[in-house]
Design a protein around this nucleic acid. Structure first.
Lengths: 343, 343
DNA sequence: CCAAAACCTGGGAGCGCTCCCAGAACGTTC
DNA sequence: GAACGTTCTGGGAGCGCTCCCAGGTTTTGG
């Protein structure tokens, strides 16, 4: 009965569509049409609405739009767990940058999710629950069934990096095969005869594709392709692999390392064994990370444009969401050789 | 009248709360209570609901929850644009990792946003529009008013890295001052007499705090603090700054570089000038990036735990959202010296 | 000049949930 | 056993939007 003091609930919901409508002297429907860029709105009404929106600082309530409409205006970027490692990866950062760049200006939010090893079910439930319009998946290890599952559920999905276990799901990848082949050919063209490689893990397409490209490059020149060692995309594994190769073939005069990060380790081992780079052993990496240019000696490498990868994935997904048809099932991005001092 | 064939609308909305209720033989309200972990639900009902949820693979519609309730169950991570650069930064990746780790298990989504230089208004409208419960802001340059604006609008906000222009907004940062001081003291303790520094840009707190710490460390030992050069957190700027210092003081025997990334450039310059590290010039960096350990020689540096930074920011924000009171206005995370070969 | 088509507009039903309210079922106490 | 708590339950009013429908206004065309 007395003036009950409002509890500190605060934060009144913001301007609503209806207020904009009133301010502009039109109906809710018309405001909605203007916001969604529909036709059949007189320019007079459109103008009035825009003014009202500007004056009131109106921002539509996404939750309500999602609930009422059929679109969530939101896509997910799913990173497979081990993610603690993945997020540290410049690859991930590059992709993220590209995704963001491509999304700029479009009224689409990006939510980041990590697929936990065990309870993928939770993730799948969430994603398929209509909370997002589409999914970008990156960093698959092995035969991750996630993309297949999502695609089967009818959720538009694009994978970054050729997925091993998800035939038919659209993907975008760098042209690892041709990039690696170019590296091999380059080494051949420089007169190298005994060319080794340090490949990525066997359960990742990126590792296998680069290995295949290297093999093809060498066999075209009728060179032996027996000098293969494997690493796991860490400097340490690169160092170990290099030592192994050196033991198996002390006379090797070049090595193509399937990732700059491993090349760093290889460089250290080479140095420790008293091999001069590139005089005794030429080294070519892959990726063109920033560390490639600051390595000693600066690393000759194959550049892949990861930002472009992110952009392209996003473009492909958005195109599908927009209902475009006959989209390519996969896209391969060109790589480029960057010549520095190591080869 | 005849069987009108459904247009290919597809993707029927998923299971709804009501179906769960029916399956469990209870009311919508009860299901809602179970989902939200409210008390006053008999264990029998709770059990039945859990079973029904499991069987139907139900996942609540976030949009509806947000709309009906007062929480969005969603926080934003805002990265200030120039973002193209920021996202490539291991700092960002580390923070992101920490944020994600801290969020794991909590039913809170993370949306990523970039503040564009010009139209911050858009961002502010969106964030204050009730779409998110709180905001994490990182990578502020200069006197960015964004955190102040958000905080003033009543939106819980936590800044990563001491903000220069946002007094009063809670923040979490590494203890840059003490870390830098420790670096300086270490160099002193190793008998170095002519100690320089390469600092970050003057408009970033992280640069200034490390510079201050270095100064304090030297002046406590009654050493001159005149050898200061500035860089901008790139290897190139580090190289230039180092050359400058060498010209001003050819006799310098140590340099504290306010970021590993700049130390890389400094190392190159030192090498080019025929200075041996650490024999002629000792080098200490800051950050302990991965490149610190693979540098030649491996870099002695001050480690900051950026993942912990992300975790702490998130914890602080979530605590505030949970209504905790008397939370600390800022938190400083300890750094640790990592001794390698460069000093 | 009138019918049909093309434009523009407002009203209102619901999207799936939360949260408030009223009330049922079960003690517990005097 | 009447009066009160305490625990549990269901009903139903919205949250702010989109989208469908019905109706009004203009243009077109024969």
């Amino acid at each position: 009965m007395t003036d009950a003091v409002d509890p500190p609930k605060a934060r009144r919901p913001n301007t609503r569509l209806e207020e904009v409508a009133r301010a502009a002297g039109v109906s809710k429907s018309t405001v909605s049409r203007v916001i969604n860029g529909e036709p059949y709105v007189s320019s007079r009404a459109r103008e009035a609405v825009h003014q009202a929106i500007g004056k009131l600082g109106y921002s539509p309530n996404q939750a309500a739009r999602t609930l009422a409409g059929s679109r969530a205006n939101c896509i997910a970027l799913v990173v497979s767990e081990q993610g603690s490692r993945v997020l540290a990866d410049p690859f991930f950062a590059g992709v993220l940058r590209g995704v963001h760049a491509e999304l700029a200006g479009k009224r689409v939010q990006l939510v980041l999710m990590m697929s936990k090893e065990g309870d993928e079910q939770d993730l799948v439930n969430y994603l398929c629950g209509g909370h997002v319009d589409g999914v970008l998946v990156i960093s698959l290890h092995g035969q991750d069934p996630l993309p297949r599952t999502l695609a089967d559920a009818g959720l538009p999905t694009v994978v970054g990096g050729r997925p091993l276990g998800a035939g038919g799901v659209p993907y975008v990848d760098s042209d690892n095969f041709n990039g690696a082949m170019e590296a091999a050919r380059y080494l051949v063209s420089r007169g190298r005869k005994r060319i080794a490689t340090i490949a990525g893990p066997r359960d990742m397409a990126v590792g296998m594709d680069r290995l295949s490209g290297w093999k093809r490059g060498l066999s075209q020149a009728r060179l032996d392709t027996d000098l293969v060692a494997y690493g796991d995309f860490t400097p340490e594994s690169g160092a170990v692999a290099m030592a192994d190769l050196l033991k198996r073939a002390p006379d090797l005069d070049a090595v193509f390392v399937g990732a700059d990060i491993m090349a760093l380790g290889a460089l250290q081992t080479l140095h420790a064994h008293g091999k001069r780079v590139p005089d005794d052993v030429a080294v070519v990496g892959f990726d063109d990370l920033m560390i490639a240019s600051t390595a000693v000696p600066p690393l000759t490498t194959i550049r892949q444009d990861v930002e472009q990868l992110g952009r392209t994935m996003t473009w492909r997904l958005m195109a599908e969401l927009a209902g475009e048809e006959n989209l390519p099932p996969f896209l391969l991005l060109p790589t480029a050789m960057v010549t520095r001092s190591s080869a």
